[in-house]
Design a protein around this nucleic acid. Sequence first.
DNA 1: CTGAAAGCGCTTACAG
DNA 2: CTGAAAGCGCTTACAG
Lengths: 332, 332
Amino acid sequence: MANSSATIRDVAKLAELSVASVSRVLNGHGNVHADTRKRVLKAMDTLGYVPNAAARSLSTARSHAIGIVLPDLHGEFFSELVRGMDMAASDANYMMLLSTMHADRERAIQALSAMRGRIDGAIVMAPQLSPEDLRRALPAGSPAVLVNSPEEDGQHHNLRIDNRGGVTLMVRHLLASGRKRIVHLAGVAENLDAVERKQAFCDTMKALAPELPVRVLDGDFTDTGAELLVQQLLASGEEFDAIFAANDMMALGALKVLRTIGISVPGQVAVAGFDDIPLASFLDLTTMRIEISDFGKRAVERLVAELSNDAPPATLERVTPTLITRATTASG
Amino acid sequence: MANSSATIRDVAKLAELSVASVSRVLNGHGNVHADTRKRVLKAMDTLGYVPNAAARSLSTARSHAIGIVLPDLHGEFFSELVRGMDMAASDANYMMLLSTMHADRERAIQALSAMRGRIDGAIVMAPQLSPEDLRRALPAGSPAVLVNSPEEDGQHHNLRIDNRGGVTLMVRHLLASGRKRIVHLAGVAENLDAVERKQAFCDTMKALAPELPVRVLDGDFTDTGAELLVQQLLASGEEFDAIFAANDMMALGALKVLRTIGISVPGQVAVAGFDDIPLASFLDLTTMRIEISDFGKRAVERLVAELSNDAPPATLERVTPTLITRATTASG
DNA sequence: CTGAAAGCGCTTACAG
DNA sequence: CTGAAAGCGCTTACAG
């Protein structure tokens, strides 16, 4: 009922051949007589035949699809990530099976399980999942690449942002432009990137400018949260000539407060963020750009390489962001 | 090799039962002895058994997955659309197979074909596809809902934005706030929504304020394009007290020019857009909000209803946007 | 170059 | 309540 379409058997019948022959031309095998091929093609055409992927998967143990498990789908980050994945996947002729876990560990495991038989491998961005969870969820021996996974399991390739490299570039830039009192607005403490950025900020300051104070305020990645922090900072009377936020939204919050108060940016205070969201370029914010779609593309390319047994050993791979200098730090 | 996982046969062997019994507990059928169930469950657990979806699809002719074909994945619109679809899909326990067509007609047809056997139905947003193409691409009799399809084929449900309704609300709002000379910045001529908005603008003006001039400038949906248009408009010396752009990006371009020139908004000129992108709220732009995630959600819900043979007849369904009044039109 | 047959991993009448 | 068997639509050795 649901599927009243023609099958390979119908094609064979119409072409007066065996299903084996039909299958051969379907898969482009060489050993087929030109005339046979022609008859098959014609029959397929008149019947509007399209092979059934499930049947094919079952006999080849290959689905030509990859599973994607993401924590969420909210915002530019994920849409760019998926876009990059899509580019690489369609280049390599793979379909994408998408699933979100909404920060729910059990759900991620289920999603992955439900993909068994449908996918040849998976890309998993699920910070909550332990290596043990992954072992449970991933079909045994099925390739997977992790994105932003906190732990290494020695089994899977793991793609992460080079937070240390990015922070170092930005701190260097701020110091080079003469800033002496840089305040770092950190992101939510549970976020791995936030933690790495904060740590990297402290380390880099100590390494590059041991004489300068290292100031960190703990934020939550939101603009409104950052506004409060900056207001408190101003109220405290503490001096500062640069704010380096762990993401752009916080940087924008900071900007808003400074401008409202009448503090000139970058004259009195430089402001910088991290991510390069669309708003950043619109509002001329200096930031670290993560080419997120590249990130997704890399992940799929790596997975595809693994699927072709054509991949170097799994490692932790860091993708370094690039410094985008704009008006909020432009002057010296 | 790729799939060395346990099969139903392994479970049956370990539990010393037939595969039929295993299948029954797997599918929660009632007619199973409690003890049998227990043994099966235990065997599944020790083997880490997960059923193979391809095999299951093949025998049930049901995949519990839906296909999504989108023109692109760029930007907020698509990420929100997919997010809404994901919500509805996971609620209804369906997986999503995602594919983009990049404005390529043949590619969309291929993508849809490649989904045969993997999906129970599809959501297709592919303006380029004719009803005839769809008939070719969609597995015969397989349900599909269209999103933003220009043509009705009488077969499939079609979800579209209520451009006329939205434009009417906005024009009414502008007129109510005393605007007399409203300029409409139209979007790209090939875009169906752009065309509808433009037409609706002209019609609404004629209907609600026949004495007022109807002014339309043809734009391209970009902020930079709109900047040029507004500069030309200013240079022409023509008077106007409101700009209603066919999308937010153009409205923002207009805003930029007006502010640069020193024209007060909304004092001298009101500015309004369409879409309610994140930038709009950030920059306090009056606009028509399309709840895009709802749009995606509706599409999937409709499809799921069709899959359960539980849907009213297919129609053209319009989703009406809501007016979001903000600072750029606030005063009288 | 071609066909008959087994098999991929499930589900589901059909008997019992 | 349970099992043997057929069948879902393909692919792929194996003969010929």
